[in-house]
Design a protein around this nucleic acid. Structure first.
Length: 499
RNA sequence: GGUGCCGUGCCCAAGUGGCCUAAGGGGACGGUCUGCAAAACCGUUAUUCGCCGGUUCGAAUCCGGCCGGCACCUCCA
C-alpha cells in the first residue's frame, strides 16, 4: 500500500504528475470553496466533489489528509477591481433581491447560505474538511498580510485601497499562461482605476465606508480583496508550502494567480507545487452560471425526487479534466446505477444474517475489481473507469443472489465498504437528518394507494385482469409505479424530470 | 487578439503509439421470470474513433492543416 502514489493533472506544468508530499504520508490540500451569497449549485459541487475524491483516494492508499476548504462570506464586487460605478457587491445585491427579503442584513444572509451549503454537502456525501475557515474570521491575518506586503514594497496604498504590484512578482502569469503583455492587450474593455499603477494590479484592501461589511484597518474602514483570504488561510492551517491546491477552472485566473503572488511574496518560499482545476459542468450542453440563472441546486433536484447519491454519481460520472454535461438523462442513468449498488448492499446484508456455510464463490474477483477501481482513481481520478469496475462488482454480487454463503457475503461486504469509502456511492457515510431519509411524497396519499393495490390483488385473484390493469394504469398516471414481487405488490414514486 | 481544453456507437462517457476487431452506463432488441406488465437477472448492439494529409512495422492515440464545440483573459466552482 505504501508504494502507491496519486497522479493528477497539474495546471502549472500542464501534465499529469505524481502528487509530491512535503512530509511523507501526509497530504496538505486546500480547495477553494464558494461565496455564500446564494445556494451552491451542482456546478459548484462538481468542484467540491473533485476535492472529495482526492481526499478519499489519498486515504485509500493510507495517506493522512489535512483538507481545508474555505467559505467566502465577504461580499466582493461583481467587477472585483474595477473602480467604475457598475461594480456591485454580490452580497449586497443578494440582500436586495427577492430572497434577500428574508434576512435582516448581509451577515444573516451569509450565515443562512453557509448552513444550506453544509446540508447539501452532506446530501452529496462529501467528506467534511478538517477546517472550513471563513474570510470574516481572518480579518486580522489579512490586514497583517497587507501590512507585510506593503513593507516588502510589493503593495502600495492609493486613495481607494491597497494594491498588489504585479511587477514585483516576476512569476505572475505562470499558472494561467497570461503574460503582462497579454493582459494589457485584453480585448475586454476594462475600466482602469486611475489610482492603480498598472491595470493588472489587484486589490488587497478596498477602502469603502459604505460597504455593508466593513472592518477598520491602517487604511481606514473597508474590506479585504477577494484573493487575500485564501493565501492567509491556506498558510495558517496548512503551512507556507502546501502539497496540493484545487478549485474550479475559472479560478486559475485571476484568483489562483494572485494567491501565488501574495503567498510567495509573504513567505519567500514556493507556495504550492501542484494545482488541480475542475472543468465546468454544463447543463443541457450550456454553461451554468449564477448570472444566467440556469443553475440547479442540490435541494431543487432533491425536491423533485432525485436521489442525492444519484446526483453525486451523475456529477462524478465523467473525469474532472473535461467538461461534463448534466442532463435529465444523465441523472436517470445515475439513478439506476446507484440503485444497483443499494440492491447489492441489501442482498449482502441479508446473506450476512441468514446465509449458511459454504465456499466464497467470489474468490479474488471482487478484490481484483476493487484494486482496479483504486488504480483508476490513482491515475488522475479516472472516475469513469472506477465506477465501471465498481459496477462490475455489484453485478457480480447480484448474480449470486440467493446462493451466497456466509464467507462470500463477508468478502462482498468488504468490497462494498471499500468501494463506498473510495467513491461514496453505495450509502451515506454519515446518516442524513430524518426528514432527508423520507421517500419522495406521492401525489396521492399512501393509504389510498394501498387500498387500490388490495383491490387489484382481489381482481387478479378473480382473474379479472382488465380491472387489475386499469388500476395499475390509474396509479401509473398519478406517478405511482407498481412492482409485483414474491412478497406482494410494492409501489414506488416515479422520479420527476428536470424540465 | 492572447491562453487553454475538447470532437469516440442512438445518448452519456473511458481509452493518449501495439493487450483496441475501443471499458462502463443509458436506450433499443432478444431471453428468463410474469395472467400480462413492471422490476430484476442473462445476452446482443462501433472492423470504427470530426475531416484531409504526414510520421511509424503499427495511430482513436504523435505531427501539420481544415471544420466544429467549449472555457479563461479581473462576476463565476
Amino acid at each position: 500500500m505504501g508504494d502507491k502514489t496519486l497522479r493528477l493533472y497539474d495546471t502549472m506544468s500542464r501534465q499529469v504528475k505524481p502528487v509530491k508530499l512535503l512530509e511523507p504520508g501526509h497530504l496538505r490540500f486546500y480547495s477553494c470553496g464558494p461565496t455564500v451569497y446564494s445556494y451552491a449549485h451542482i456546478g459548484n459541487f462538481r468542484t467540491f466533489l473533485t476535492a472529495d475524491l482526492i481526499v478519499r483516494t489519498a486515504e485509500a492508499i493510507g495517506w493522512r489528509v489535512s483538507y481545508v476548504s474555505n467559505i467566502t462570506d465577504v461580499g466582493h464586487l461583481t467587477e472585483d477591481d474595477v473602480a467604475d460605478a457598475a461594480g456591485e457587491d454580490k452580497m449586497e445585491r443578494a440582500l436586495r433581491s427577492k430572497e434577500g427579503e428574508n434576512f435582516h442584513n448581509v451577515w444573516e444572509l451569509a450565515e443562512y447560505y453557509e448552513s444550506a451549503l453544509q446540508e447539501d454537502w452532506q446530501r452529496l456525501n462529501l467528506r467534511e474538511p478538517m477546517v472550513r475557515p471563513k474570510a470574516t474570521q481572518h480579518m486580522r491575518e489579512q490586514i497583517l498580510a497587507t501590512e507585510e506586503l506593503i513593507g516588502k514594497k510589493s503593495a502600495y496604498e492609493t486613495p481607494t485601497g491597497v494594491y498588489f504590484d504585479v511587477e514585483s512578482f516576476p512569476g505572475y502569469g505562470k499558472l494561467s499562461g497570461n503574460t503582462q503583455e497579454g493582459l494589457k492587450s485584453s480585448v475586454r474593455d476594462v475600466v482602469a482605476d486611475d489610482n492603480k499603477r498598472r491595470q493588472a494590479d489587484f486589490a488587497l484592501w478596498k477602502k469603502d465606508e459604505k460597504h455593508l461589511m466593513q472592518w477598520f484597518s491602517p487604511y481606514g474602514w473597508g474590506f479585504p480583496g477577494w484573493h487575500l483570504e485564501c493565501s492567509v488561510m491556506a498558510m495558517k492551517y496548512l503551512g507556507e508550502t502546501i502539497d496540493l491546491h484545487g478549485g474550479g477552472e475559472d479560478l486559475i485566473f485571476p484568483h489562483h494567480e494572485c494567491e501565488i503572488a501574495q503567498s510567495e511574496t509573504l513567505s519567500g518560499k514556493p507556495f504550492c507545487d501542484h494545482w488541480v482545476h475542475t472543468r465546468f459542468l454544463l447543463v443541457n450542453g450550456e454553461k451554468m452560471s449564477k448570472r444566467a440563472g440556469n443553475f440547479y441546486t442540490v435541494r431543487d433536484l432533491v425536491g423533485r425526487g432525485a436521489d442525492p447519491l444519484a446526483i453525486r454519481y451523475a456529477l462524478i460520472s465523467g473525469v474532472y479534466t473535461k467538461n461534463l454535461n448534466f442532463t435529465d438523462q444523465s441523472l436517470s442513468d445515475a439513478t439506476s446505477n446507484v440503485e444497483r449498488f443499494r440492491r447489492a448492499d441489501a442482498v449482502v446484508d441479508a446473506a450476512l444474517d441468514s446465509a449458511g456455510e459454504g465456499p466464497d464463490v467470489f474468490g479474488s474477483t471482487l478484490e481484483d475489481l476493487y484494486e482496479e477501481a483504486l488504480e483508476a482513481m490513482l491515475n488522475d481520478l479516472n472516475t469513469s473507469v472506477a465506477l465501471a469496475k465498481a459496477l462490475e462488482g455489484a453485478r457480480t454480487i447480484l448474480r449470486e443472489e440467493g446462493t451466497i454463503s456466509k464467507a462470500a457475503a463477508q468478502s462482498a461486504k468488504s468490497f462494498l465498504d471499500r468501494v463506498n469509502a473510495l467513491l461514496g456511492i453505495v450509502r451515506h457515510d454519515v446518516a442524513l437528518p430524518v426528514t432527508e431519509a423520507a421517500p419522495a411524497k406521492p401525489a396521492i396519499d399512501g393509504a389510498r394507494i394501498q387500498a387500490r393495490i388490495e383491490e387489484r390483488a382481489a381482481a387478479k385473484k378473480a382473474k379479472d385482469f382488465a380491472l387489475a390493469d386499469a388500476i395499475r394504469r390509474e396509479l401509473d398516471a398519478a406517478g405511482i409505479e407498481l412492482r409485483d414481487t414474491p412478497e406482494g405488490t410494492v409501489w414506488v414514486v416515479k422520479t420527476a424530470s428536470l424540465s
